[in-house]
Computed example of a mutant assay.
Amino acid sequence: MPSFDIVSEFDSHEVTNAVDQANREVSTRFDFKGSNAQFEQQEDSIVMKAESAFQLQQMLPMLYAKMTKRGIDIGCMESGNPQTTGRTAQQTITLKQGLETPVAKKIVKLIKDKKLKVQAAIQGDKVRVTGKKRDDLQQVMKILKEEELGQPLQFNNFRD
């Protein structure tokens, strides 16, 4: 029976490459000369450090551009509020991976509302969709691509 999984994930190695490229660009840009502006990657977040909140505002589009060039959907990034302490400012950007339960339930409800001949089941941080026909599964993919769920989705583990 054909099936596929709906997931929301990113390649952490590509995130590392994008952060390295953004650090390189910050170090070579004229308006950042002499400042200690940098990006630091942690487990599931990126911390931007600069001398002012204005520099943080300039650094964020740089990071987004590098992520997009590396094939990472910026919808998985959630930026926090900048905090200024004395002479430094920093901002944390959280990277979301995996489908949260409310989003997974919304996906299952959306699939059931379309009355297609497929079954959707939540399995941890992914949703498995099974059906008798490949065409039905492809139609589910098309529906989910058109829908705005607030999180980037990928379809993998397609089996015939």
Rank of each mutant, 00 (worst) to 15 (best):
M1V: 08
P2A: 02
F4K: 03
F4S: 01
F10M: 07
D11Y: 11
D11P: 06
S12C: 07
H13N: 03
E14N: 08
V15F: 11
V15I: 10
T16E: 15
N17M: 06
N17S: 09
V19H: 05
V19E: 01
D20T: 12
N23C: 09
R24G: 10
R24W: 13
R24V: 11
V26W: 00
V26G: 06
V26E: 03
T28C: 08
T28P: 07
R29T: 15
F30L: 10
F32P: 00
K33F: 01
G34D: 03
G34K: 00
G34C: 07
A37S: 14
A37D: 00
Q38Y: 07
F39L: 06
F39Q: 02
Q41H: 08
Q42M: 05
Q42R: 13
Q42N: 07
Q42K: 14
E43K: 02
D44A: 14
S45L: 11
V47I: 06
M48W: 00
M48T: 01
K49E: 13
K49N: 05
A50T: 01
A50E: 05
A50S: 14
E51K: 03
S52D: 03
L56F: 01
L60S: 04
L60M: 06
P61Y: 07
Y64L: 15
A65V: 04
M67L: 14
M67I: 05
M67W: 10
M67H: 04
M67E: 11
T68M: 05
K69F: 09
R70P: 06
G71V: 03
G71K: 08
I74V: 09
C76D: 06
C76S: 12
C76P: 02
C76I: 09
E78D: 11
T84R: 14
G86S: 05
G86W: 10
G86D: 09
R87D: 10
Q90P: 02
L95C: 02
Q97N: 09
G98L: 10
G98R: 02
E100C: 01
P102F: 06
V103K: 04
V103S: 05
A104L: 01
A104P: 04
V108S: 01
V108R: 05
V108L: 08
K109F: 13
I111N: 00
K112L: 08
D113H: 02
D113I: 04
L116D: 05
K117L: 08
V118T: 10
Q119G: 00
A121D: 05
I122N: 04
Q123E: 04
G124S: 01
K126H: 00
V127Q: 04
R128Q: 14
V129H: 12
V129C: 03
T130V: 15
T130I: 12
T130G: 10
T130D: 14
K133M: 09
R134H: 08
D135L: 11
L137T: 07
L137S: 04
Q138T: 07
Q138F: 15
Q139T: 12
Q139K: 15
M141L: 15
M141Q: 15
K142M: 12
I143Q: 07
K145V: 13
E148I: 01
E148N: 08
G150M: 14
G150Y: 12
Q151K: 15
Q151C: 15
P152K: 12
P152N: 08
L153E: 05
F158Q: 09
F158N: 07
D160R: 15
